[in-house]
Structure formats: C-alpha cells, structure tokens
Design a protein around this nucleic acid. Structure first.
Lengths: 188, 188
DNA sequence: TTGGATTCGTCCATTATTAAACAAAAGACG
DNA sequence: CGTCTTTTGTTTAATAATGGACGAATCCAA
C-alpha cells in the first residue's frame, strides 16, 4: 500500500484513539481528529465515510490482530500453545491504550459484544468436543467459555493490570486445558 | 506552507539528526535518511540538493532560532532582558540533541565557526561602545565576547549540562552587563 | 585490476493530500 | 422561537509524494 496512505491512517487512528481516551465517542469531531492527526479534513473522509466507520475499522483491525496473536497461522499448521497465549497478552499489554479506551468509553458499549463475538468464532474452531466435553451442548459451552475469557481480558485491561502477562497465561492456560480448548498434554 | 512539506521536512530533519548522533556525517547516506524518515528518496531530493544542503539548512534554521530566542523582535521594539536570555537557554536545552550532534560530530567541524559567526552578527548590533567600552577596538571586543559566549554555550551543551538554565542566566547576565552587551541597570 | 553491489542524482507518470469552497445539518444560546 | 456558530459531507484544481527507472559514480571484496 502507498506509504502516504499508511502514514495518514496511522496518524488519524492514533488521534482518534487519543481523543476517545479523553472524552466520549459522541463528542469527538472529525475536525478534532484531523487537527490532532495533522491531516487535512478531506483526508479523513478519503479513507473513512464517517466517524462510525473509523471506529468500526479500528475495532475490526484490532480484533483481527488479537485473534492472530493467538492463532498466527489460522486453521492450518501450528497449534496454539502457551507461547502463543503469552504473545496474546503481550499484544494486549502493548495496545492497552486502545482497549482501555474502547472498553471504558461510554459511547462505545458495543465493543464488549464484538470482542465476545470474535472469541466465539475463534473458540468454535478450536474446541475439542470429545472426552470431557462429549455430552455438552457445544453452543452453550462456547458461550460459557467466550464470556469467561472475555471477562478475564476486560478485567486485566480495565483494572490497572495487577498481574503480569506470564501470571495470566499460567492461570488461563490451565483453565483452557481443563476445558479442552487447546491440545491436551500428552501425559494424560 | 503546505502541510505536506512541513511534515516531510520535519521527518527528514529528525531522521538526519538522529543519524548524525549515531555516526559521522560522512557515512550518513540519503537512503538511510529516507528510510528512517519513512519518506521516498525522491522526496529528500525534492527539498534538498544533497546532504550538505540538508546539513546547511539545519544549521541555518537553528541558528536563526537561537538568535530569535534572545532578540525576539529583531532590531525594533523590546530590548533583551534576563527573561529573554532564559528563553535562550531553555531553547538550547530543548534542542540539546541537535546541538550535541553537530558540536560533537567529527564530520561537522565547521559548526563551531558558524555559531560564532551568528553570535558576532548579533553582538555587533547590541553592544554599547560608550562608557566602559569607549576606548576599545570594537572588532576585537566583539570577537572576544562572541568567543566567550560561544564557549559557554558549547561547554554547557557538550558537558551533560551540569548547571540549570537559571544558573547559566545569572552568571552570563552579569558578565554581559559588565561588558555593556545589554541595557545597563538604572541604578548605576 | 576486475566485477558486483550500493549509492547517487535525476527523471517520469501516477496517486494521495491539500486548501478552499459550498450547502445542509446540528448545536449553542439568548 | 430565531440567530449565530460549528460541524458535516462533498466537490474542485493545484501540488506534493510516491515508486520506479535510469546511467553514472563510488565502494568493496576477490
């Protein structure tokens, strides 16, 4: 992609997130965004139809990255591991500014739902319905687990991250193994 | 000026100074500058004929700012004061990265001379040749004082700035008054 | 010295960004 | 309510930035 587009989008998104951390989404104006991004107002409209589209693209982009941090190769190839879960929390930590903004901003209540939806899609592919889960209703189980993980993420991000990434991985990985959301340990 | 020009120049200059702080001027390439600035190589040539011109414009720009920080209104209007001298040292402190780079870089030995030349021009306008200076040779006096001030600045910047801006102002202002480089105190 | 790689400086057509204007909608405020 | 201001979304022509190409110059290792 053209270097100019990347730079403009980067500046716009950064300005937008910064403003969202300061005030409600509704009272963020395109003018402010353009000014803070040091970009012409027309440039914003060149890439985004309006601020709802801007918010939408931001959320989509980050949720794709979030899933990718855990499932880097998608369906094919490598299975998720403790290491990839650590990558996920490192990614979350690095982008805590964005996630805090969208999770706490009064004007963006739908983000919680979209995070859960992304988790649902990811879980639906990963979960092993044999063994301990043989007699469970998959839909209910997936709902249960997606809520659990989403809640843990939201709690870790929204509170000032009281535990380290490694601590979170240790606890969460055990819970995921227990529910056959990841490859089972061999000595079992 | 067009916003794009400002942004490009800013990025180029910042990249350039950063590289000058890391290696000698001679071994800084236009390619490196463009890459670090995240700008097309052609854009560099659009604003600067070569890296010597880039260095030249950087130095000119900063020396103008340095003089302006002390004589904000040029010839007309307000006289320099302790406050404006404080502005000068605050400016120097804020741009210490640049001044350190050009003062210590082995490839830019001429910067010292240009700093002195700028001080000479500034002093020539300001100095009062009456009173204590009546029987002095102006050219020699100006040379003497420009070297003195230039040396103080270079020492303050190059050493890790052991004294505060206010300390420097206090000492230097006394020396400037003593030599009638600034308006004399009224009770004298 | 020779050859390969990198940088240089310049050119080009294409594309993104710019500042400006504009009417319409939304807010702010008395 | 009406007035004044700001924001919105769209359009325009002008211009800066882009990536790519090119031959020449420079550097560096064999």
């Amino acid at each position: 992609m053209d270097r100019r587009i990347l730079k403009s989008k980067e500046a716009i998104v950064e300005a937008f997130i910064g403003l969202m951390a300061e005030k409600n989404f509704e009272q963020v104006t395109i003018n402010e965004i353009a000014n803070r991004a040091n970009v012409s107002r027309g440039t914003v409209y060149l890439h985004y139809t309006d601020k709802f589209d801007l918010l939408d693209q931001c959320i989509k982009f980050h949720l794709v990255q979030l899933i990718d941090s855990f499932l880097p190769c998608g369906v094919t190839g490598i299975f998720p591991s403790k290491a990839s879960l650590l990558h996920t929390f490192q990614y979350l930590g690095q982008h805590a500014f964005f996630y805090t903004a969208v999770l706490t901003n009064k004007g963006v209540p739908m983000f919680r739902d979209r995070l859960k939806a992304a988790l649902l899609r990811g879980l639906d592919k990963q979960i092993d319905m044999d063994g301990i889960n043989r007699d469970m209703n998959k839909e209910m189980l997936v709902q249960f687990l997606a809520s659990a993980i989403g809640g843990m993420i939201e709690w870790w991000i929204t509170d000032p991250m009281p535990y380290s990434e490694a601590d979170m991985v240790e606890q969460l990985w055990a819970l995921m193994e227990r529910n056959q959301m990841v490859p089972q340990p061999l000595n079992q």
